[in-house]
Write a protein that binds this DNA or RNA. Structure first.
Lengths: 339, 339
DNA sequence: AGACAAAACGAAAACGTTTAAGAGTACATT
DNA sequence: AATGTACTCTTAAACGTTTTCGTTTTGTCT
C-alpha cells in the first residue's frame, strides 16, 4: 500500500505538503499540487480510511438499522426499496453504508449505540424497528445525527410516508366508485397503523359512511394466513362489505385466496385494495389497486437530510418531512356507482 | 470517548498494560487484568475501530457487492434473502457488513477494488453482478479474500445453487406427472442460465422427450412483460405445451396473466412452474410449484467460508460449494398421467 | 551468596493521516 | 535599508491502538 510517505519521498516534499496538496489546501502552490497529484496517481495512491477516521473523527460511513422481526429488513419489500434508494443517494454524496449489527443473541455483542460509536458512524438511519426497544431509545437519545423513517421521535429528523392522506385518498376513491360498505383489515399497532386507522375513521365520518365494528379487523402485516381468515369472516357477515382494504399488498394475497376459495371474483363480486405499491401487485390480474408509497423519494430525502445534518449541524433545522404516496389505480376496485 | 489512556491513568498502569490486559495477553497478572477490566467496564470504555484497523490491518468488516441492473441487489428477492442470511452469519462471527459502492456515475468514484482497499475490508462477498465487468474482474484478481455466489471463478471460493439438479428435478417432476410437452422460458445468458438450460436439455434427452425448438424461448429474468408475450406465443402454437417452466417465480406472474387472459385455468388447462421459491408463490392459488433455492444455507455457508478464508488462509482449501435446492410442490402442475 | 529464569510490567515506536504553528523566501512598501 | 506581507513549505504533535524489546522484581537452584 502506497502512503503519503511514499509520495513525499518520490516528490521530495514533506508528508504534510503531500496531504495538503491532495486535499487542495490553499497554501500549496499550483505546481506542487500538480506534481504531487500526478505522482499519487502514478503510484496508485489511495487514502487509508482508518487513518483518516482516526485523525478526523469522520468516517464517511453511515450506520443503518433495519430490523424486521429479528431479521434485517432486507426481505421486507417496502424497506428494501427504501434502503436501496437511501443507499444510492448516500453513495452519490460520498458516504458508505454499514449495517448496525442487529444480531441480538450473540455472546459478546454491543448495544446499537456502542456499536455505532465503535465504528464511528457519522450518522444513522433507523427504520423498520421496534421503536420502544430500549436499545433503540438509547441510540436515539445519543448525540449522533439520526434520521428515522416512519416514526416521529421528538427532536429528531424524520421522513414519513403520508399515511393519513394515503388512507383518505384510498377510501375516497372507493367511495367515489360507489362503495359504501368498506372494511379495513389493519396492521398491528404502530405509529403507521394508528395514522391509517384514524384516517380511515375520519374519512368515513366525513363521507358519511357508517362502518360497523365488525368491518374493522386487526391482522399482522404481511401475514396472508390472518388476512385469509379475516376475509372469510367478513364475507360471512349477514351484510358483507363490498370492498376490503388490506394492511399491505402482500397480505392482500391472503384475501385474494380466500375470495377465490369462496368462488367469488375480484372485482365483480368483491373489491379489494392493498397498501404499499409493491411491484408484484402490478403483475397480477386484476392489478391491485393500492397506495404506492414513494420509497424512492423517501430514501433519497432521508439520505439528503441526514448528510446535511452531519455536514451543517448548525444550519439544519430538524424537520418532519412528509412524503406523499399516490393512488395506483389497478383493477381490483370495481366501479359500482352506476348501480 | 474514553480511551486506553484514561483507563491507564485510572488504574495506575501503562497504556500497554491496559491494552494487553483487555486483550487477555499472557504476560499480565490475573489481578491486573481484573482491575483493568473492571475500570474499563465502569468507565464505559469502547475500542476505537479505526485505530485498531490502522494498527492491525484488520477491520472486521466485510465488503458486499450486490448489484442488480445498476441498482443494489436489495430489491431482488433471491439476493435479498441471501444477503440477509449472509449478514446474520457474518455478524454472529463478529464481522460487520459494508456495501461496496456501486454508484457507477459519480464524478470522483473509486473502482470496486480501490474502494475495498480504501475501507480495508477483510473479505468480500460478490453476488448478483455482471461477472464480466472489468471492475469486477479486477476485484476478483486481487489479493483480498473473496467468496462469490453462483458464479465460478478460477481459484476463488464460490457458493453455488445446484441449478443442474434443480432443473432436472423440476423437469422430472413434470414428466412424472404425465407431461411430455414441456416448454422452457429461460433467462438471458449467464452461468446460471447455462446450467439450467443444459440441464433441461439433458434431462429431456434422458427422459426421451422431444422438445421442439419453439418450446425454448429466452426472456429476461423477472420481466413479466416478456414472459407474458412468450406465453401467448407458446399457447398459440399448433401443438402448445402442457407445461411451461419460467425463468423465475416473479416472471411466472407474466405467464399467469397471459393464461388468464386466454380464459384458461391453471393447472387444469395448462401447468406452470417457476424457479427460486419466493415467498409470494406460496400465497397464491394454486400455489406455484417451483424449485426453492436454499438462500438461507447459501448465505450462511458463504459467510462461514469467507471468514474461514480470512482467519485461516493457509488451511482453507478453495472449494466450490454446491447447495441443493428442493422442489416445492404447489398446485400449479397438474397430474395428467392418468390420461 | 551468586546466578539465572520466570513473571509482570513499561517505554517507545509504529500504523497513515491531519493540522497548528513556525520558518524561510521573495517582493513590495516605506 | 528596514519593515511588512504574501506565499510556500516544513516540523512536530496528535488521533488510539498494538507490539517489540527492555527492565525490574521475584523466586529457585546450586
Amino acid at each position: 500500500m502506497v502512503s503519503l510517505k511514499d509520495i513525499s519521498a518520490a516528490c521530495g516534499v514533506s508528508v504534510a505538503t503531500v496531504s495538503k496538496a491532495l486535499n487542495n489546501q490553499s497554501d500549496i502552490s499550483a505546481e506542487t499540487k500538480e506534481r504531487v497529484r500526478r505522482a499519487a496517481a502514478e503510484m496508485g495512491y489511495m487514502p487509508n480510511a482508518a487513518a483518516i477516521a482516526l485523525k478526523t473523527n469522520r468516517s464517511f460511513n453511515l450506520g443503518i438499522l433495519f430490523v424486521d422481526e429479528a431479521r434485517s429488513g432486507l426481505t421486507h419489500d417496502y424497506y428494501a426499496a427504501l434502503l436501496d434508494s437511501f443507499k444510492r443517494k448516500a453513495e452519490s454524496l460520498g458516504y458508505d453504508l454499514t449495517f448496525i449489527n442487529s444480531n441480538k443473541n450473540r455472546p459478546n455483542r454491543m448495544s446499537y449505540l456502542t456499536h455505532a460509536k465503535y465504528r464511528g458512524f457519522d450518522g444513522i438511519c433507523i427504520a423498520c424497528v421496534n421503536f420502544y426497544d430500549p436499545e433503540v431509545v438509547e441510540l436515539i437519545r445519543s448525540q449522533i445525527p439520526i434520521v428515522t423513517i416512519d416514526h416521529v421521535y421528538d427532536g429528531r429528523m424524520v421522513v414519513l410516508s403520508d399515511n393519513v392522506r394515503g388512507m383518505r385518498d384510498l377510501v375516497t376513491y372507493c367511495y367515489n366508485r360507489g362503495h359504501r360498505r368498506i372494511a379495513f383489515i389493519h396492521g398491528t399497532d404502530s405509529a403507521v397503523t394508528r395514522s391509517r386507522l384514524s384516517s380511515f375513521h375520519n374519512t368515513a365520518v366525513t363521507l358519511g359512511l357508517d362502518i360497523p365494528d365488525e368491518y374493522i379487523i386487526e391482522a399482522p402485516y404481511r401475514n396472508t394466513d390472518k388476512t385469509y381468515e379475516a376475509t372469510l369472516r367478513l364475507m360471512n357477515l349477514k351484510q358483507p362489505p363490498t370492498c376490503i382494504l388490506y394492511p399491505d399488498d402482500f397480505s392482500a394475497f391472503g384475501g385474494i385466496m380466500a375470495i377465490q376459495h369462496l368462488g367469488l371474483s375480484i372485482p365483480n363480486d368483491i373489491s379489494i385494495a392493498g397498501y404499499d405499491g409493491l411491484r408484484i401487485g402490478r403483475h397480477m390480474d386484476p392489478k391491485l389497486t393500492t397506495i404506492r408509497q414513494d420509497t424512492e423519494r423517501m430514501g433519497e430525502i432521508a439520505a439528503e437530510k441526514l448528510i446535511h445534518l452531519i455536514e451543517q449541524p448548525k444550519s439544519t433545522l430538524i424537520e418532519q418531512v412528509m412524503i406523499e404516496g399516490s393512488l395506483y389505480e389497478g383493477g381490483s376496485v370495481a366501479d359500482i356507482s352506476a348501480k
